[in-house]
Amino acid sequence: MTRVHSTPSRPRSRPAWLALSIALIGIGLVWRLVPLGLPRFALKYGGSLLWASMVYSLSAALLPRWSIAATATVAGLVALSIELLRLYHQPWLDAFRLTLPGALLLGRIFSPWNLVAYAAGIRAAAWCEWLIARRNLPYRQPPA
Rank of each mutant, 00 (worst) to 15 (best):
T71Q: 00
Y56H: 07
P39H: 14
L62I: 02
Y45L: 12
A61D: 00
A75N: 00
V78W: 07
Y56Q: 04
L77A: 13
S59M: 03
K44N: 15
A69C: 05
A79K: 05
A60I: 00
M54W: 10
R65Y: 04
I68Y: 01
L43N: 15
T71M: 01
V78Y: 07
A61N: 06
S53Y: 09
L58P: 00
Y56L: 03
A61G: 10
G47Q: 12
A70I: 02
L49C: 15
L49A: 15
W51L: 05
K44A: 15
S53H: 10
S53M: 15
S67Y: 02
W66F: 08
L62W: 02
A42Q: 13
I68N: 08
A61V: 04
Y56W: 11
L58S: 06
S48C: 08
T73M: 12
R40F: 12
A75W: 01
S48F: 14
V55K: 11
G46P: 09
M54V: 01
A75S: 03
L62S: 06
G76P: 02
S57R: 12
L62M: 12
G47I: 14
A60N: 03
G46N: 14
R40Q: 14
L43P: 15
A75C: 00
L63S: 05
V55Y: 13
S67M: 09
W51P: 06
R65D: 04
Y45G: 08
V74T: 04
V78P: 00
L63R: 04
T71P: 01
S59E: 03
A69M: 05
L63F: 13
S48P: 01
P39Q: 12
A75L: 04
S67G: 07
G47T: 13
G47N: 09
R40M: 10
A79E: 08
P64N: 03
L50T: 08
G76H: 11
W51Y: 15
S48K: 08
T71D: 00
A69G: 12
V78E: 01
Y45C: 10
W66M: 09
A42R: 15
A61R: 02
S48G: 13
S59C: 06
S48T: 11
T73I: 11
V78M: 02
G46I: 14
A70S: 13
T73P: 03
L50G: 11
W66E: 09
T73Y: 07
L49E: 11
A52Y: 07
L43G: 15
A42E: 12
L62E: 01
A75H: 04
T73C: 06
A61W: 00
L63Y: 05
